Amino acid sequence: MYAVIDLETTGLYNKDRVIEVAIAQLDAAGRVTATWETLVNPERDLGLQDRHGIRAAEVLSAPTFDRNAGDIASMMLGRVPVVHNIAFDSRMLASEFQRLDLQIPDLAAYGVCTMSWAGHFLPGAGRGLEACCAAYGIENDHPHHALSDVMATAELFERYLRDAGPVPPWAALSAFAQVATWPALETGRAESVHRGNGETSKSFLSRMVDRLPVVPDPPQADMYLAQLDRALVDRHISATEGEELLRIAADMGIDRTTATELHRGYLAALAVAALEDGVVNEAECADLEQVAALLELGAEAVDAALRAAAAGTGPTPQRAPSHSEGATSWSSQARSPRPRTTGASASSRPDSRSP
Rank of each mutant, 00 (worst) to 15 (best):
Y266G: 09
S206K: 00
A94C: 01
L102Y: 05
E186H: 12
R79D: 11
R340L: 01
A94T: 12
G47V: 01
D89R: 04
D6M: 02
R264C: 06
V59L: 05
G47L: 01
R256T: 10
T200E: 00
D141L: 08
A73T: 11
D27A: 01
R91C: 04
P183Q: 11
L12N: 03
R99I: 00
P350Q: 10
T187F: 06
R162S: 03
F176E: 14
L100C: 07
L212Y: 12
R195Y: 02
L93A: 09
A175H: 12
S203P: 09
V209L: 11
A73K: 04
R235Y: 15
L205A: 04
N85Q: 15
L102F: 11
T10C: 01
D277V: 05
A344D: 07
A299T: 04
Y266A: 07
G298V: 14
P337G: 05
V179G: 03
G253W: 15
T9E: 10
L205D: 02
I138T: 07
V179D: 11
I72H: 04
S201T: 10
E325D: 14
I54F: 00
P315N: 13
A269W: 15
R319H: 09
K202P: 01
E289A: 06
D16A: 00
A309M: 06
T316C: 06
G242F: 15
W330S: 02
R127N: 08
V112F: 10
Q178A: 15
A231Y: 14
I104W: 12
S352W: 15
A131K: 08
A152N: 08
G11Q: 06
P350M: 05
F176G: 02
L246K: 05
A118I: 10
S352V: 08
V272F: 07
A269Y: 08
S203W: 15
E158D: 15
L93R: 03
A239C: 15
D277S: 05
F97D: 05
